[in-house]
């Protein structure tokens, strides 16, 4: 009886947590993979300086550049420009690629800043 109850609870929990997890996992992919995936993914890159970021009322658009291949991706973030965006040395965008407007719709942005925060090189 005690064992049966414990096993039932454990099985129930694993099934419950597993289902939730499967829905929430966002794999870490390259820009090329992000373009071809219809699932929620995380993509990392540098800010593409050739495109000036734009902020409308509730959408922030910028261009992300792959560190290795140089490929770029238009990212539309559902929100305002995050703090420290300008100092970011790389950016992680979490969301989905939408081929209808050829851009990546980010739900979340992680901004990675250099730990040395007072940096600015003379010359």
């Amino acid at each position: 009886m005690r064992k049966a109850l414990l096993i039932a609870l454990l099985v129930g929990f694993v099934a419950y947590a597993g289902l939730n997890l499967a829905e929430s996992v966002t794999p870490y992919v390259s820009i090329a993979e992000a373009r071809s995936s219809s699932n929620s993914v995380q993509v990392k890159g540098l800010l593409d300086k050739t495109f000036a970021p734009q902020q409308t009322c509730d959408e922030f658009t910028f261009s992300l550049q792959d560190e290795d291949t140089g490929e770029t991706l238009r990212v539309k973030f559902d929100g305002v420009k995050p703090d420290q965006f300008d100092e970011a040395y790389h950016i992680v965008a979490v969301g989905k690629f939408d081929s209808s407007d050829d851009s990546f719709h980010a739900k979340k942005l992680l901004i990675k800043c250099p730990s040395k925060y007072e940096g600015q090189n003379p010359n």
Binding site: Y16, L21, S24, V25, T26, S40, Q42, K108
Partner: peptide
């Protein structure tokens, strides 16, 4: 396999 993270929603929802 490939690296992945979870949405923060996962924690609240679960």
């Amino acid at each position: 396999g490939e690296a992945a993270a979870v949405d923060t929603d996962f924690y609240v929802k679960s």
